[in-house]
Simulated assay, not measured.
Amino acid sequence: MGPFDWLPHAPLEPLRLDWLKGVELAVLRLDCIDPLISGNKWFKLTGHLAQAQHAGASGIISLGGAYSNHLHALAAAGKRFGFPTVGLLRGHPQDTPTVLDLKAFGMQLHWLGYGGYRARHEPDFWGPWREHYPHLFPVPEGGGGSAGAQGCAVLVEQAQAQLSNLGWADYNAWWLAAGTGTTLAGLVLAEAGAHPVYGALAVPADHGVVQNVSALVQDGYELLDASRGGFAEVDPLLLDFIEVTQLACGVPLEPLYTGKALLALKQQIEAGRFAPGTRLIFIHTGGLQGRRGVVLS
């Protein structure tokens, strides 16, 4: 495999919205780095790909759902860089737009059902798959774990290198959606206590984000519930917020992660959590391809 020396650059842009009420907000546009290998997914994959190279693997096997941003980016990377990929999918066979892309990118798919997918955390889950695909390197759901977090640490350096473009000498905190908590943990590791990181939970508490993050970092962050009742749960308030915000600032959002996180920030600012003059960096974690599974209007 490899070499993988592609390090995309994400622009840092100001966001001007009426509800900020004096809070200064900039967005690190990970959605802009590539049309297919988009968002935080490549950054989470880099550490795993390095481990796969070191292990002598020829490709990657990983997990996700029928609209998985992670599998979409992984399959696209496999096609671009010439390594085989296998996806283990939640549920039963269906041809969503994402799944059709996975097939077109050459990813081999196995559908696990729902019970089979829930078993992914069992200690013996990977055993049969390692036997079936001994040449492939297993990567956790969403590109999580220590390797994924370390790959995201570079985002702090990328943002700090662009502060002068905003006229900022410094900033006060980070704000982003948390789906597995991997990107958040990477920011915390890179910050080493210099700036706090706020994670807006896009999934319910039983999805294990708290456990994932606490296994990687001990402090320097806070998690807030932004799940709005469940993963992939949308409601009229959220959809209306996304529509109005996109028109106001021109930044495309999706309802599973970035939309939820930005709405949660609005609610926190309205509740007085951040004083005027506070400078926040919001990470746009990508995921726009997943919008094909949600009716936004």
Rank of each mutant, 00 (worst) to 15 (best):
G277W: 10
F137M: 08
D5L: 15
A177V: 04
P204D: 08
C249H: 12
L163I: 11
Q218D: 13
A248V: 11
L12R: 02
A55G: 09
L63D: 04
T285C: 13
A226M: 05
A226D: 13
F4S: 14
V203H: 03
A178I: 01
R130T: 09
G193D: 00
F105H: 05
T98Q: 07
A149F: 09
G144C: 07
W175Y: 09
L30A: 10
W126T: 15
L102A: 05
L155P: 04
W129R: 00
C32P: 03
L88D: 14
L238P: 14
T46F: 12
Q289Y: 02
A57D: 08
A178F: 01
I60Y: 12
T258P: 02
A271Q: 12
H132F: 15
V154E: 03
R29P: 05
D34E: 12
G64H: 08
L109F: 04
M107Q: 05
T98Y: 01
P97Q: 00
A77D: 15
P252F: 15
T278K: 05
P97K: 01
V188M: 10
M107R: 09
Q53F: 07
L100A: 14
P93C: 15
H54V: 11
D34H: 15
E131Q: 12
H135R: 11
P236Q: 07
G193W: 00
R80F: 14
I33F: 06
H284G: 14
A73R: 11
R291A: 15
E243K: 08
L12D: 14
L163R: 01
H195C: 13
G286D: 07
Y133N: 05
V156S: 12
V251Q: 06
Q51A: 13
T98A: 09
R130Q: 12
I283C: 08
R291Y: 08
C249S: 14
R120D: 01
C249V: 11
R279N: 09
G56E: 04
G290R: 06
E141N: 05
A147F: 06
P236M: 06
G78M: 02
T258M: 08
A50T: 13
H72A: 10
G78T: 03
V99M: 04
P138L: 05
A232T: 08
G230P: 08
N212F: 01
F274I: 04
G167T: 06
S68D: 00
T182W: 05
N69P: 02
L89T: 06
L263T: 13
